[in-house]
Design a protein around this nucleic acid. Structure first.
Lengths: 218, 218
DNA sequence: GTCTATATGTAGATAGAC
DNA sequence: GTCTATCTACATATAGAC
């Protein structure tokens, strides 16, 4: 994991910046913004304090950089799913929209790159926090609006604010599973698996919830 | 708000302890454990640093005291609702259980004592956090188990772990509304009200979700 | 029960050597 | 680009006067 060095000097050029951002991502995801010092980020990244300042700027700016680094990839995955659905011959269904919005995120939260898993946990930690919404809202809301448009096409008789609430509760449910399965484990008396183990139940729950809200708002 | 003092000495006996816990509750709720120093709690409470240490012990212990202070009242409200429902002549319905679990908390989050509102936001902040679940799980899970028992009576054919997941997602949805309505406001382009303004939609969503999970698990 | 004072450590940020 | 050193501020915790 550590690049070979013989004299204590580590010259890795551009890669160092990534190491700093990766370390910040892991620690912020695991413990939150306030619990993590830039000194610990430096130690985790295997660099000195000054290096973090050089690449990341202030702690706040470093945090924002970490948030923004992966936004486009996730937005693109969700948009691609929506485009696929619209290109199909069969009519759009609400279940497809729920699946299309949730699955790219659950995928990243469950498998592949551990840094993506950390990022997913970080997002789960802050999206429903007034303090950070101004930082992240603008990053993810445009794609959410596109899904809301599609939901509105399917249920044009439902007031949009009801769809907004239903989608927001859907996202909250999704994020809660990524943030922690500890309570499920505690209440059910068994080990909880990863977020992907709950995908089917989550989609069923959220779809049922959205349909119920839509039916009432008719 | 400030008791009259003439000499800088404030002798309020037992009330001081409450002031310290109230101040801690407000600040922890608004900004989280790590963002708040006991110095700020002291300032908020209008006491000196040593007083907080005297009444609260360590920061961790102070936090736990704040958490535990209101648990019994909330548990009692939920148990009273469940007892009422069981005492009725009409058969138990799933909607009553959802309402019985959510409404006492939403009540406290929306009206009355501002300290109760703060406590509700504090709980919302930590229940789905691995770091704090060991501190709060044991406080709220027994009542959750009683509601799960009632849910299981209504749908005995559904595996209990599915009911656990559905109830946990229900709670996550509820907590997200108490923690922040900022995203709903941002996505819908209008001011968000208090948590109680979303009670009907929330209950409809969660009930629809639970019924859908139960129907699939049959 | 409340105060002051302080011990001891860590925080964020940056200047300047290499 | 990276390191060391340091400034300034604030953290938790507690001892001991009143």
């Amino acid at each position: 994991m550590e690049e070979a060095t013989t004299d204590g000097r580590v010259l890795r050029g551009e890669a160092t910046r990534e190491r700093v951002l990766d370390a910040a991502e892991r620690l912020f995801a695991a413990e939150g913004f306030d619990a993590v010092s830039i000194r610990r980020i430096a130690a985790e990244a295997g660099v000195t304090l000054g290096v973090v300042g050089f690449h990341g700027g202030s702690k706040q700016k470093l945090f924002r950089t970490v948030l923004e680094r992966r936004v486009e990839a996730l937005n693109a995955a969700r948009r691609a799913r929506l485009a696929e659905l619209r290109a199909q011959d069969v009519p759009l269904e609400m279940r497809d929209l729920v699946d299309g919005y949730l699955t790219p995120y659950l995928d990243q939260a469950s498998r592949g790159d551990p840094q993506w898993r950390a990022y997913a946990r970080l997002i789960a930690r802050i999206v429903s926090d007034d303090r950070w919404y101004p930082e992240v809202g603008g990053l993810y809301d445009p794609v959410a609006q596109e899904y809301l448009d599609a939901m509105h096409e399917l249920r044009p008789e439902v007031p949009r604010r009801e769809l907004v609430t239903a989608l927001t509760l859907t996202v909250a449910s999704m994020l809660s599973l990524v943030a922690s399965r500890a309570r499920i484990a505690g209440l059910s008396g068994r080990e909880a698996g990863g977020p992907m183990d709950y995908r089917e139940t989550l989609i069923t729950f959220c779809l049922g919830g959205i349909e119920a809200v839509a039916a009432r708002g008719r």
